[in-house]
Amino acid sequence: MNKKVLYAIFDDEEILLESVKVLRSKEIEIEEVYSPFPVHGLDHALGFKETRMAITAFIYGCIGLSFGGLLIYYIMISGVGKSWPMNIGGKPNFTFYQNFPAFVPIMFECTVLFAGHLMSLTYFFRNKLYPGATTKSPDPRTTDDKFLMEIIVEGDDKKMRKLLKETGASEINEKDTDNE
């Protein structure tokens, strides 16, 4: 049993950020960082890939736009609209393009609805925040005022502890592996 999981606790996000940069420059892999709030620049310092949320937003928006268009086309023109034509203010109701201005709000709202909701769901899904999910944070203080860095060390952990202390960790704990 050579693997050890270290939890380095930091008091300040600036110190944490510096520490992350130092560790990354020494090519030490950081498993995870837990923080009570988003730290500006941390994702960049950890070397995460650029988020693909914007691309999903565009795709979901396109789905919503098509759905809204098809929905209103079915309701007003082709399906229900054919068997039960609706005369609203004498507007032409036989073709899609003649009635297009009236359909724009529906299509716009569907775009926003789909993009917004599906993005939220994607976000939850990616972060495994399904109903009944419990916290993965090893230390409840990371929801208050502490920042936690998780590192897996193989073999001797003395050097790593020293380095973490030097870069400003206020305390270093070890994961209790006896129960596993």
Partner: peptide
């Protein structure tokens, strides 16, 4: 569009 659509619809 808001200006155009409302006027177009009310006619």
């Amino acid at each position: 569009f808001s200006q155009f659509m409302l006027i177009w619809y009310a006619n």
